[in-house]
Simulated scan of single mutants.
Amino acid sequence: MLHPKLSRVLKVIYSHSVVFALMGTTLKIRSYKKSIRLDKLSWTYITYSLFISTYMLSNSYFMVPQEFLDGYIKNNIILRCSFSLMVGLGFMEMASCYGTIWLKRQEIIQFYKNSLNYWTRFKILMKTTVNKQELKDLQLSLASRMRREIMVLYGGFVFSTVVQYQLVSVLNNRTILAFGARITHMLHFVAVKMGFYTILILLEHQFKVIHLALHFIEKEQNRKQWKILSSIASFHLETLQLARKIFRVYDISNATLFINMFTSTINILYHAVQFGNESIQHDGWGALFGNGLIIFNIWGTLMLLNTLERAVSSCNYTGEQLKQFNDLPITSKNFQRELDKFATHLRNNRLVYKIVGLVELNKPAGLSYIASIFTNLIILMQFDLRLPQQQNIH
Rank of each mutant, 00 (worst) to 15 (best):
I13S: 04
F20L: 09
T25W: 07
S31R: 07
S31N: 08
R37Y: 05
D39P: 04
S42A: 13
T44H: 12
S49M: 11
M56C: 13
G71Y: 01
K74N: 01
N75K: 02
L79F: 07
F83T: 09
L89M: 12
A95G: 06
C97K: 13
Q110A: 11
F111I: 02
F111M: 06
K123A: 12
K123N: 11
I124C: 01
L135G: 02
S144A: 14
S144T: 13
S144F: 15
I150P: 02
L153Q: 15
G155N: 05
F157V: 07
V162L: 14
V163G: 04
I176Y: 12
L177G: 02
G180A: 11
I183W: 05
T184R: 04
F189T: 15
F189W: 12
Y197E: 08
Y197A: 09
L203E: 08
L203H: 15
E218T: 00
N222K: 08
I232H: 09
F247L: 12
L257Q: 13
N260E: 11
N260M: 13
M261F: 04
T265K: 03
Y270T: 03
H271T: 10
F275N: 09
S279F: 05
A287L: 14
F289N: 09
L293P: 06
L305M: 08
V312E: 02
S313C: 00
Q321N: 02
Q324P: 00
T331M: 01
L358A: 14
V359A: 03
L361E: 00
S368R: 06
Y369A: 02
N376F: 12
I379Y: 14
F383A: 05
